[in-house]
Nucleic acid binder design. Structure first.
Ligand SMILES: [Mn+2]
Ligand SMILES: [Mn+2]
Ligand SMILES: [Zn+2]
Ligand SMILES: [Zn+2]
Lengths: 132, 132
DNA sequence: ATCTCAAATTATACTATATCTAAATTTAAA
DNA sequence: TTTAAATTTAGATATAGTATAATTTGAGAT
């Protein structure tokens, strides 16, 4: 709670009850929520919050690099609380998104990329999670 | 022209002028068109074709494995005429999508993927294309 | 503590993408 | 040629997100 408010201040972001509630949903743990999921979760604490405010704040957090937008499946945007480079595994059965640590995968480009100056990349894997 | 019709027949797909026109746009060359881009291109030959028909046929071609849906940037779906495994490079300046041959990139999983049974993956790269 | 105004929130309208419906048309097989 | 199934179509509906403009509020200055 206090550290989330501190993080907002550090990034020069003004405080409002709505904004704090959005931050508490989306910055607390590792997560990949959609905008409307965030809205529903925020409504549990602030029943009158508007959808536009949730979008405004999610977009603000992306601009301030506290969140990263990811489009991983079905054209649905999710907001990734981990802004460091990492890969993703999509469970095709459950629809769940799992983070895959950067170090868990090595990508080597076998020449042929001549003209492509890569500034950023990620591996997107699909499959099933065994057990569980 | 003839080989596109042959390909539709091979896959047990009935023929209509609208369907053939969509196929000619989307199955002729390597491409990553959006649905509305396809609609505009088809309208040049068949000015009265409806948007629903374009969507119906693109979705049919995906179901029949003649196309693959890709969501690569901005939440915009595109229809990939290459259904074989390959990677993608997104030019952040121009917005263009480039195919990267499967052999041009090697991906090694450095253990740690224990529970994840990967059935499919791709590398999505972003950056600038040098020259051009 | 009060004043002030830039910033934020809100309801609403609007855009874009995609699917659904049900009637009319067309394809292709009998 | 007849017929049934498949396809197309306009329009309605659904969903995700942005734009607008009036209202409210946070927080620094007095
Ligand atoms: Mn966005
Ligand atoms: Mn689709
Ligand atoms: Zn992630
Ligand atoms: Zn491709």
């Amino acid at each position: 709670m206090e550290d989330i408010i501190a993080k907002l201040r550090e990034h020069g972001i003004g405080l409002t009850p709505q904004r704090i509630a959005v931050a508490q949903v989306v910055l607390r743990d590792r997560s990949h929520w959609s905008a409307d999921e965030v809205w529903q979760l925020v409504q549990q604490r602030l029943p009158t919050v508007s959808r536009a405010t949730v979008y405004n704040n999610l977009n603000l957090f992306v601009a301030k690099h506290l969140l990263k937008e990811q489009i991983l499946q079905g054209g649905h945007v999710v907001f990734d609380s981990c802004v460091e480079p990492h890969h993703h595994f999509l469970d095709e059965q459950t629809g769940q998104i799992h983070d895959v640590p950067w170090e868990a995968v090595r990508v080597e480009t076998h020449d042929a990329l001549g003209d492509f100056e890569v500034r950023d990349y990620q591996v997107i894997m699909r499959g099933r999670r065994r057990n569980h």
